[in-house]
């Protein structure tokens, strides 16, 4: 999505088939913010727009999705043209200062090439009463992922990509935000079925593009065996919601 080490235009061709919007995540975001019909909301790094469209369907506010990948945005636009989608990097948003009420980023931070510049630019465009919600995972939450069980190399890769929560807090404060409040959230357990296997098969998780072929094949074999032996794979996804107030 952002200045690229992974070809996100290429990823967009499979990503949208295997990654749906997350209603529970969107509800968590909306629980933490007060929006009116006049509010301007931006989804920074919106990808194929699944969470953008979900959130927009639940509020009266004007919502705009941003992404650097034109391939991702074309997929978003095909679904619904009521929401404007704009191609721009997260660290150079084409808005004037103090124009936005609320920004959110769902599972985007680890894709960014320059997180301090991104926080600085989002702080610039937020109104004085504005806020930002970053949905990400702490290093402990990464270790507890189901993919970390089958693909341990992916946990190491992602702990390099994901800044831990204390680092995010520090960077937000340095970028000009006045207060930061991280909250952890655990989803209800779900039984992972064939759709999980399909996502892994299509490399729908971006970190699977970053591990070696051997590590991928070993993990895939272990996962397939677990399914063949009818092991119940129960998983409670965990996320951190880092709230920042300008």
């Amino acid at each position: 999505m952002f200045r690229k080490t992974i070809d996100y235009d290429k990823v967009s061709k499979v990503y949208d088939k295997v990654r749906a919007g997350n209603p529970e995540m969107v509800h968590q975001i909306l629980d933490g913010v007060s929006l009116s019909g006049k509010s301007l909301v931006i989804d920074v790094g919106c990808g194929t727009g699944n969470n953008t469209l979900l959130l927009a369907s639940l509020v009266q506010a004007r919502v705009i999705g941003f992404d650097i990948s034109n391939g991702m945005l074309q997929k978003a636009y095909e679904k619904q043209s009521q929401i404007p989608f704009v191609q721009a990097p997260a660290d150079c948003i084409p808005f004037s200062d103090e124009s936005v009420d609320f920004g959110f980023m769902t599972e985007v931070l680890h894709h960014l090439p320059d997180i301090p510049a991104t926080f600085h630019d989002i702080c610039r465009i937020l109104k004085s009463s504005g806020s930002l919600c970053i949905v990400t995972q702490s290093h402990e939450q990464i270790d507890r992922r189901m993919t970390s069980r089958f693909f341990p190399a992916s946990a190491a890769v992602d702990k390099e990509r994901y800044p831990d929560i204390d680092v995010i807090e520090d960077l937000l404060l340095k970028a000009g935000f006045s207060a930061v409040n991280p909250k952890e959230y655990t989803y209800s357990p779900v039984r992972l079925g064939l759709e999980y296997l399909e996502t892994v098969t299509k490399c729908g998780f971006s970190m699977l593009h970053k591990i070696s072929k051997e590590d991928y094949e070993k993990g895939f074999e272990d996962l397939r065996n677990a399914f063949q032996q009818s092991e119940v794979l129960l998983y409670s996804a965990e996320y951190s919601f880092v709230w920042a107030t300008k």
């Binding site: 200045r3 235009d9 650097i68 034109n70 945005l73 074309q74 636009y77 043209s81 404007p84 989608f85 704009v86 191609q87 721009a88 990097p89 150079c92 084409p94």
Partner: peptide, 22 residues
Amino acid sequence: VIDGIACMLPDDLRMDGKQHIE
């Protein structure tokens, strides 16, 4: 604006590759 999407990239991301071609 191409196919309904406003392409608002900064200069350095427009000078080569697929973006420049488009």
